[in-house]
Structure formats: structure tokens, C-alpha cells
Design a protein around this nucleic acid. Structure first.
Lengths: 329, 329
DNA sequence: TTGAAAGCGTTACCAG
DNA sequence: CTGGTAACGCTTTCAA
């Protein structure tokens, strides 16, 4: 088997207790002893068994991370942020992909709960009730969703929509379509809310299309309705839908942005790579991941912290090639 | 704290030993007792602490997974395959993203080794020597790389290139460019090898450009050289580079595939979403992940298995809009 | 068929 | 400052 604390103790001629101290609380050990132990540990390439440690300390040094679908280009950025922050804090990360199955989410939390100090739930699809249920099992941080007082990191979708609408109306657009994402999606609801606010403030007109699946094909399917609505601009629930729109518009020979402007949401890597490149509302995905881990670690240190356990991250409109002046303007 | 085996034992009026047996080897327990225990366990929502179990059994029920960069659209598919297969087998998965840092890879293996039964290394960037070193620490399966006799799942890059070249020469192309990926990349070397073989067999002419970074900007950077080489078709090391090529060609007003055909490799989700859509060599990424886990689990059951510990997965050319007849044909 | 006891690798506590 | 001992939650002999 692997090298244990006893091997190090033997090599250094001390007791396991001393090895433990020399490595975790060096100041409690005489310099000479400490160095001898550390040298032995290094020579044997010893590192403590975290599972065994967790058994007694009650802390595993592990985090859980549950995402609905890694194939959705929105998530990898968030996951990377989480990974990076967790590694800095010397935490290992369990990752589970639920394939968009709400039931699997709850099940996975239950399974992981025993092995982790806390769990980050990325855009969870389960019901509010279930969410509260699992939050009772283990410390939990929500990403991209807000439910009651549960700790959460979200994006300012409302302001993102304000930026989007402001951009379009400044270009002279008055009739704007929105291709909606899933009804059950928290972020879709937020985006619709922000959209209506901004449209009303600008005195513009909103035509809602959908909802469609937040996939490429959802955008393809919505494109003809958008066209039929006689709008000069369309905002999609997310970039992937917007790419579908772009594709179908291209097939139908509609020029973007000459005939119609297209605007996405999320700023996935792809949106800068297509032609015309996609104007979109950028979300700081890595920061979101980092902030989620920060919040979770904070919660672990001080479970009943006074400070806010909810944070909303700012967004930034990325103006690119798919939006331009309204045709009649 | 959470509910332990003792709580169940107390509730069922038996000893912890019996609880353990009733749950893991039910046939060794009298039916009546067994049911009582199982009912108590269910009522208390008990599930064994896997870390504690691992301590004694030597098996953790955890797998490690190390990837260079989740942001690279090649990896999420593989990760999903691994996730799915691992979950079926009731394994939890530690995920680590190394940000393309070879040193981090080795370090992470060392850290994870203690907590997992084995590790899947996805397209590892570290040297062969390091790879052999970490393989001595814990059971390891390589994905998308082959080193000596180490267990590995790879794609048949050589045949993929044969398909690509066959497609292009059938369309009448004789002068073909290749935009190379990183020199250090195993799959780039394999692809070049297959390419040269196929080009020679077809009696065509190959112009090698690069190497470039396997990024969008790498493709953008290579496009003008490709154009200057006076070829009628170009194969990119991967889809992301191909998208960069497409973008730059578009900017320069070169029609694809009318003036030049573009062919990618990997079949990332994006390649079907752009216009023109990208002809590319598809790799079964999810299968690769699943196969990797299967291999690892097999190895764990039977460490010195006779059967092959290396598997090569077939590829399939996906003909789409970015390739067409050679201009002069 | 069941229970007691030992032990996995670690840390925490209490003597010394 | 150091060592012995107990304990974490579980599984696995070994006896009964």
C-alpha cells in the first residue's frame, strides 16, 4: 500500500502524533525534530490520507459540483472558475453531470453529501422544495438561481437586458422580438422581467416568441416566426438559440444585421467565432465559479455569518457584428 | 452529524456488524432480521460513509479524471461519457482541470491517488517519463494518447485522415494544405502520419502550414499562408482551427467551398452550427469516455488481465457544407 | 445467524 | 515538546 504516517514516524524515529504535528502545526514542535520529520516525509513522498483525516476532523477537503449538462457551452467556464478557486484553497472537486435530469440532481446531492464539505449547485433544475430539502443535508451554494435565502451567486440579468435594449433602441429599433427559453428556467424569467422593464422604459414594442428549447435547433425553429413578426431586431434567451436563428436567417437569405439585428446572451466562446460575430450580453462565468467557491468556503468557516450570502454579478454587453442600425432608420 | 451505522443498529435492535451484513451481504442474515434492518436504514435514510468504508476495504468507489482544458470543446463530450459510465457503476468522479499545465497534471495525480481507485488521464500533456511515473502510483488509463504499454483508449486518427483525403481527392483536389497543431501533441503526430500516408497513396500534393496553437486564432493566423500556397483544399488539425480559417477566409472574401474547401477534425458541436457548416472527421467522444472507464474498472477487477488494455476507436467523416468540388475540376 | 473485537490512517486529547 | 490512547465510521475476522 501507500506510505502512511507510521512509515514516516519510523523513519524519523518519532511517534505518529509528532509526525502529525510537525506537518500540520509545525510551531508546536522543536525545530530539530520538525526538520527531521519533514525530511523523512519528503523522502518517502508522504501525503496524508484525506479520507482518514476527514473521518476524525469532520472535514473532507472535498467539494461537490453538480451541473445539468457540460455539453452546454455555458457551463465549462463556470466549472473552470470553480476548479481554479478550489485548487487554490486545496480542495478537490467531485463533479457530476445530471444530463438535465432534476431527479438525478437530488440523488447525487444525497450521495455526495457524505464525502464533501459542501456542494455547489450550478443552475439547478429541481424544484424549490427539493432544493430546500437538499440544503438541509449539507452546505449548499446556488449558482445562477435564487431561491429564498439560500446562499447564491447570480448574474444581473435585468441589467443585462437593459444594456441590450438600450443598444438596440439607440440603433433605432422599435419593434423587437424575444425568443424565450424554457418556462421553468429561473434565468429566463429574470431575463423576461428585465426585458419588459427596459422595453417599457424605452417605449418600444416587444413580441415574444417561443418558448423553445435552449438549443441550436430551438433557434432554427423560432427564426421563421421572428421573421413573420416583422421586427427589425431579435434578442434570444441565449447564444446557442441566437446561433440557430443566425443559421436559419442565412438559409433564408436574410442579411444580418442589414435586414435584422440578432442579439444573444451569455457570451459563450463560440459567439466571437461565427460570422457575423454575435452581439451578446457577457456573463463573468469564471468569476461566478470562483465566487461560488468563496462563498461556500466562507460558509464553512462561519456557518451563521452575518454578511450577505447572496451576490449578484454584473454583466457587460459585447457589441459585435450581428447588430446594426434598424433598416428604416 | 449524519446518521451512522450505529444509529441504524440501535433502531433495529442489532449490532453494527449485522447492519453491515444485512446491507452488503443480505444472504448471510436471517430474513426477518434483514428486513428489520433494511427498514430502519430506509427510515433513517442511511447510506454508508464511503470514505470510512474505503479505509478498510482499500477501495474508495471514486475515480479521478484529469483534463487539460474544459474550455476546449473537445473535452466536455469525453467527460460526459466518463460521468455517465461511472455513475452506472456507482463510482463518483473527481475532476481536475489543469489549464494545460503539464506540471499540474503530475501534481494532481499525486494528490488524487490516495482518494481514488484509479485515474483517467484525458489527452495528458506531460512527458512519457512522467506518465510512467504516475502510472506506478495508481491505476491509470490514458485517453487520446498512447505511451508504451500503458492502458489507453485512442481514436484511429490515421484512418480518419484517410477518409478526409479520400473525400477531397474524390472531389478532384490535388494540392492540399494541412494546418498543423502543436508539435508536442500526440494526436497531431498521428494525424500527420495518417495524412502523409493517404496523400502519398492518392498521389496528391501536401503543403504543411504551421504549427499553430489549436485555437481559433491559430486558424485565423494560418489562413493567409494557406491562401498563398495556392491550394484548393485545406485540412486543419482540429475544428477550432478550421473555424478560424473559415472566419479569416470570409473576411478576405474567399468563398467556401467554391474557391477553397475546408476540412476539420473532431466534430465538435459547433461545427454543425456555423455557415457553411464544417466537414470534419467525427470522433466518438462519449464512447471514448465510457470505454476509458470500462477499461479502468476492468483493470481494477483483474490487475494483470490477459486481454488487451489498449483500444482504438473508429472515426467517421462528416461531410457538410465546407467542402466541394475543386475549382478547376 | 449474530455479536465482539480489531483495525484501516488520521488527529485530538491528556499525561508526562 | 513529545508519546500514548482514544476515536472517527466502517468491514471483517473469529467465536459463540
Amino acid at each position: 500500500m501507500a506510505v502512511t504516517i507510521k512509515d514516516v514516524a519510523r523513519a524519523a524515529g518519532v511517534s505518529p502524533s509528532t509526525v502529525c504535528r510537525a506537518l500540520s502545526t509545525p510551531e508546536l514542535v522543536r525545530a530539530e525534530t520538525r526538520e527531521r520529520v519533514q525530511r523523512s516525509a519528503a523522502e518517502l513522498d508522504y501525503s496524508p490520507n484525506r479520507a482518514a483525516r476527514g473521518l476524525i476532523t469532520g472535514r473532507t477537503g472535498n467539494l461537490g459540483l453538480i451541473v445539468p449538462d457540460l455539453g452546454n457551452p455555458f457551463f465549462p467556464g463556470v466549472v473552470k472558475g470553480i476548479q481554479a478557486r478550489a485548487r487554490e484553497a486545496d480542495y478537490a472537486v467531485f463533479l457530476a453531470d445530471t444530463d438535465e435530469d432534476p431527479a438525478a440532481e437530488a440523488q447525487l446531492v444525497r450521495t455526495l453529501a457524505k464525502q464533501v464539505d459542501g456542494i455547489v449547485l450550478c443552475s439547478p433544475r429541481m424544484s424549490e422544495q427539493e432544493l430546500r430539502g437538499v440544503a438541509a443535508l449539507t452546505p449548499v451554494v446556488l449558482l445562477n438561481r435564487r431561491v429564498g435565502r439560500l446562499p447564491a451567486i447570480t448574474f444581473d440579468n435585468v441589467d443585462g437586458m437593459r444594456q441590450a435594449v438600450t443598444h438596440l433602441t439607440a440603433l433605432g429599433h422599435r419593434r423587437i422580438a424575444y425568443v424565450a427559453g424554457p418556462r421553468a428556467s429561473w434565468s429566463n424569467r429574470e431575463r423576461v422581467r428585465g426585458l419588459r422593464l427596459a422595453i417599457a422604459a424605452a417605449g418600444a414594442e416587444l413580441i415574444e416568441v417561443g418558448p423553445v428549447q435552449p438549443q441550436f435547433d430551438g433557434g432554427v425553429a423560432a427564426a421563421d416566426q421572428v421573421l413573420a413578426a416583422g421586427v427589425t431586431a431579435v434578442i434570444a434567451y441565449n447564444d446557442v438559440i441566437a446561433l440557430g436563428l443566425l443559421s436559419r436567417l442565412n438559409v433564408r437569405g436574410i442579411a444580418v444585421p442589414a435586414a435584422i439585428s440578432v442579439l444573444g446572451f451569455d457570451d459563450i466562446a463560440l459567439s466571437a467565432m461565427v460570422h457575423p460575430s454575435l452581439t451578446t450580453v457577457g456573463l463573468p462565468m469564471k468569476s461566478c465559479g470562483r465566487a461560488g467557491v468563496d462563498l461556500l468556503l466562507g460558509l464553512l468557516q462561519d456557518p451563521d455569518r452575518f454578511g450577505s450570502t447572496r451576490r449578484e454579478l454584473g454583466t457587460q454587453l459585447m457589441v459585435r457584428g450581428s447588430t446594426g442600425p434598424a433598416p428604416s432608420a
